[in-house]
Design a protein around this nucleic acid. Structure first.
Lengths: 220, 220
DNA sequence: TCAAAAGCTGACCAAAGTGTCAACTTATTA
DNA sequence: TAATAAGTTGACACTTTGGTCAGCTTTTGA
């Protein structure tokens, strides 16, 4: 009977040859994601992360030099899900089709990745301090690109005039809500630009959009 | 020259006769709200709260017996803002008027009370552990009441059919977004009921609403 | 004016938590 | 198979922080 490595459970199945380093780091990040999501940065204890990943605390420090480094690694990993849903907003498609897919994709992702989504949103709320300049720039770029798509739709008469950024906020925040209360997923939009946003404009955008959507034709 | 009490600054102006106890508790809660909002429950240190309120730490413990008690007091205080915006959703009004006022009121409150709003949302996200059963029940009751208003509007043909709860989520989450990124304020909706919500229904509600709102008449 | 109540506070603990380390075991490779 | 690298770990050092306390000062009210 061949001896199995201590922290290698049978259910691991195929990847028996996975390098020790890769496997341990993966386990640590998985545990860390879960715990940071539930407790936040300050609330999370590395002893708990260690226990959850099946390693002694000192071993966690063998791979990561600090709690912040673990957190940063976790956050970095989350950006990947960012582009996917946004990809649905494409100039090639018709608006109703694109927006429906976007919302559906977002909610589906949210549903499957509750933990990550919630953690990501939390990081955004805390000011995205641990997101690299590069990642923030990336998100801003992608957003700008999609804003352009909406603007083109409007120019082509396929959509009634609407501020694309406020529209994205509506879509993002509404879908994110479901992550915060049940599963998890999402993206961040531009933190910086919001500072200069006009609140009455935001109010008008949201309420008018909703009203145009819900009132019987002609009443508005 | 009359000696002024140590922790009584001149700018306090009129309320010179305010009772010591009331004033100190107010200062502590004010500082605590700010710090809990920025750092979360675990991240907040009572030494920092003490410093921010101009009192030595031991003095804070003279009024509150634990960190949790302070937090609880802060949260309790926030519920008050809950009903106000929702009051706009009234059966006496026309839907477009009511919803416009609701969104505007919400954003205005949000703008003025960034800190509290963010803190409240954070507490909700963390599962509203520190909200009393009574407060949660209250919020649920108010929500149910407003759901009824929307349903009546729909029955009267004043609104196209829509799930009122999802509509509220759209409105709440969108307005809340602005609190999380700039100022602060809000409400919570029913955490419990969300568990049984159908995600594809949510997706449909959101995307269809937005589409009906934005597509030129007749295209949908 | 004086005693009791209320308020104040520096100093101090004990618990918890981050991060370190030296010695040990297991894997790799020539 | 032997030497080197990689991985493991219990124990510990050090810091932070929630919370306590005994004794002090100020306020209150009769």
């Amino acid at each position: 009977m061949p001896k199995m490595p201590a922290n290698k459970t049978p259910k691991d199945g195929g990847d028996t040859d996975e390098k020790i380093r890769a496997r341990n780091i993966r386990e640590i990040l998985k545990a860390a994601t879960e715990i940071f999501s539930r407790k936040g940065f300050d609330g999370a204890r590395i002893a708990e992360i260690a226990e959850a990943s099946g390693l002694p605390k000192a071993n966690v420090y063998y791979y990561f030099s600090s709690k912040e480094e673990i957190y940063r690694a976790v956050i970095e990993h989350l950006i990947e899900g960012w582009d996917d849903a946004f990809a649905h907003i494409s100039g090639d498609r018709e608006p109703q089709d694109a927006i429906r897919s976007y919302v559906a994709a977002k909610l589906a992702y949210t549903r499957r990745n509750v933990i990550e989504s919630r953690l990501f949103a939390n990081e955004i709320i805390r000011g995205a301090q641990f997101l690299s300049r590069k990642d923030r720039q990336h998100m801003r770029t992608v957003t700008d690109e999609k804003v352009k798509v909406i603007e083109d739709w409007i120019a082509a008469g396929k959509l009634l005039p609407v501020d694309p950024r406020h529209l994205f906020i509506m879509l993002w925040s509404a879908t994110q809500f479901y992550a915060d209360f049940e599963p998890l997923a999402c993206d961040a939009l531009h933190t910086t630009k919001l500072k200069s946003m006009d609140y009455s404009h935001a109010a008008a955008t949201i309420s008018e959009t909703v009203l145009r959507g819900l009132l019987p034709a002609g009443q508005i």
